[in-house]
Amino acid sequence: MNTANRITMARIALIPLFMLFFTKWPAWLAEVSGIIQFLNNYGSYIAIGIFVLASGTDKLDGYVARKYNQITNLGKLLDPLADKLLISVALIMMVQADMIASWVAVIMISREFVITGLRMIASAQGIALAADKLGKWKMVLQVIAIVAVLLGNYPFQWFTSIQVDNILMLLAVCLTLISGINYLVQNFKILKLNDM
C-alpha cells in the first residue's frame, strides 16, 4: 500500500475516534469513571480537532497521489468513500445531538447515494466519471459548515448576533443540491441508458 492510500486509510481510521470523542456518555457512567467524565467535558473539542485533521487529509492524499504518481484503483475507491463516510457520520452524530435538523443530513447524504449510484452505472459501462469543481467546492463548504456548527457559532458570536453557522449550513445544503443536479445533468447524457 502506497503513502497516498495510507493517508486515506488514516482518514477512515479517524472516523471511529471522532465518534468516540463526540459521544455524550450517561452521567452515571461519568460519576464512576474519570475517563468518561473527561470525555463528556472535553471530548467535543477533541472531536472537532479530529474532524478538521481528517478533513485536511483529503487534500493531502490527493496531492501525494498526483505528485508521486501513486494514483491507484484502490485509491480511487477509498478516497471518495472516506469523504462520504466522514461527512455522513458527522451529520448523523450532529442530528443525534440536536445540532442540526434531520432534513439537512438527509439531503446531503442522499446526494452522495445518488451520485455514487450514477458512478456505479457508469463504471459498469466502462465509463469513469470524475468529480467536478462544483463537487469539490461542495465538500469544502460542508466541512466549513460542520466545523462552524460544532463550534457553536464560535468565533462569529463575538462580532454578530447572526447565526453564521446556520447560514453556512444552509448554504452547504444549497450547494449540495446544486452540485448534485449539475453533476447529474452533465453526466447523465454520457451514459448509454438505453442499454440498461
Rank of each mutant, 00 (worst) to 15 (best):
A145W: 04
K59Q: 09
S161K: 11
M196P: 00
L129S: 01
A27W: 01
L150M: 15
Y154T: 11
V106K: 00
K84M: 09
L74E: 05
L91C: 03
F22Y: 15
I121R: 05
L170M: 13
A30G: 13
L168N: 05
D83T: 01
I162P: 03
L184A: 14
K67Y: 06
Y183R: 09
L77C: 01
V147M: 07
I162W: 10
T8I: 06
I181A: 15
Y68N: 12
M139E: 00
Y154N: 11
V185S: 09
L53P: 00
F159L: 15
L39G: 05
L191D: 03
K84W: 09
D61E: 09
I144E: 01
K136R: 11
S123F: 06
K84E: 06
I71P: 01
V89E: 02
T160P: 10
L29E: 08
A97D: 13
L175A: 08
L129K: 02
M99A: 11
I146A: 07
N5R: 03
V114S: 06
N41G: 11
L171R: 06
L193K: 02
I36Q: 00
V164D: 05
I144D: 01
A124Q: 13
K138R: 08
G180A: 09
K59W: 15
K189F: 13
Q70D: 02
A131F: 04
D195E: 14
L177V: 15
A27D: 14
N73Y: 06
L17N: 04
C174F: 15
V149I: 13
G152R: 05
L175C: 06
A30Y: 07
N40H: 04
A27V: 15
V185Y: 15
N182M: 06
M169R: 02
N73W: 01
L14V: 14
Q70M: 12
Y45P: 00
F188E: 02
D79N: 08
M99K: 15
M94S: 05
L74T: 09
P16S: 11
M120I: 12
L20E: 04
K67A: 13
I167G: 03
T8H: 03
V104A: 12
W25H: 08
L77P: 01
